[in-house]
């Protein structure tokens, strides 16, 4: 099946964040997590996908179409939770539901009510009286009640307690279980990608520093921590980052087999965590 989302060599100057040469692909039935610190371009990328802004260069295709030209048709198949998870908080949960329902031909009121029940959202409560977590849930209920094929979530886990974070991520993997729907979410917390994400994208300063199946990172990549003699590894093909540590060097390899020759003696070989990868990726040995 065709990719739901294709981003090709996007450039966009926007406020302080400038996206440079960003490319991604998301096939149906998968979860893509975009991680990066504040100002790395996550929200800008999401705005481009939703057609809120246009790229300066490159191309974006959502369901095969340009969101700048057929934004309306594309958005009818997208469910979204933005960094402000909902709006018009002066309305009650039910009234907000009705307001949003008007916009979707495929609105499923039964499903919406079921989600409200499941998320324990009181229909008569004003949205302004909901906690951030509850607002994210309401946003998610709104996003899931119209048979969306692509879910776009901008930092849904920010400000949530760990229990609800887990619950939310678990829900994402339930959403894609139909094999048709995909999820794209951004986060500042790398461990959000740990389990359910199929594809990980790391953004730093508007550039993609890693993009690919997350399992590649966790299963194939390796870190060698060792003494000063590791400096010799710097030139190797498989080396993706190297950083001076207190004892010598930490070297990130994208191939465990290539790393093994370097860990004779006191050097140790480790599977990297996502944090390790993010920290080391692209870093050069500083003198």
């Amino acid at each position: 099946m065709d990719d739901l989302l294709v981003v090709e060599r996007i450039r966009k100057a926007w406020d302080v964040v400038a996206l440079e040469d960003v490319s991604l692909r998301l096939p149906p039935g998968h979860i893509m997590g975009i991680a990066g610190p504040n100002g790395s371009g996550k929200t800008t990328l999401i705005r481009l996908i939703l057609g809120h802004i246009r790229p300066d260069g490159g191309a974006i295709r959502v369901f095969g179409d340009d969101p700048g030209l057929s934004g309306r048709a594309i958005r009818s198949r997208i469910g979204f939770v933005l960094d402000r998870p909902i709006s018009y908080e002066h309305l009650s949960v039910t009234r907000l539901g009705r307001l949003v329902a008007d916009f979707y031909a495929d609105w499923d009121e039964v499903e919406f009510q079921r989600l409200l029940d499941e998320f324990e959202l009181p229909g008569r409560r004003r949205a302004s009286a909901l906690s951030r977590g509850m607002r994210v849930k309401l946003g998610l209920a709104l996003a899931l009640a119209h048979n969306a094929e692509l879910l776009v979530l901008d930092e849904p886990t920010t400000g949530l307690d760990p229990v609800f974070r887990r619950e939310l991520l678990a829900r994402l993997s339930a959403i894609i279980a139909d094999g048709r729907t995909s999820v794209l979410f951004s986060t500042q917390i790398l461990t959000d990608l740990d389990r359910v994400a199929d594809f990980a994208v790391f953004l730093r300063g508007g550039r993609v520093v890693f993009s690919g199946p997350k399992d590649d990172l966790l299963d194939r990549w390796a870190i060698v921590r060792g003494g000063p003699e590791l400096a010799a590894a710097a030139g190797a093909d498989a080396v993706r980052g190297i950083r001076r540590s207190r004892m010598g060097f930490d070297v990130l390899f994208d191939d465990m087999d290539a790393a093994k020759p370097y860990c004779d003696g006191p050097a140790v070989l480790e599977r990297p965590t996502l944090d390790d990868v993010f920290l080391l990726l692209g870093s050069k040995e500083s003198q």
Binding site: R72, A73, I78, L82, S87, Y88, E89, H90
Partner: peptide, 21 residues
């Protein structure tokens, strides 16, 4: 004022609407 107060521009623009409408 309501749109401004609730920062609604992006929320509405993410719905299936086009700007001329």
């Amino acid at each position: 004022v309501i749109d401004w107060r609730f920062d609604a521009d992006r929320f509405v623009a993410a719905l299936p609407v086009d700007r001329p409408a």
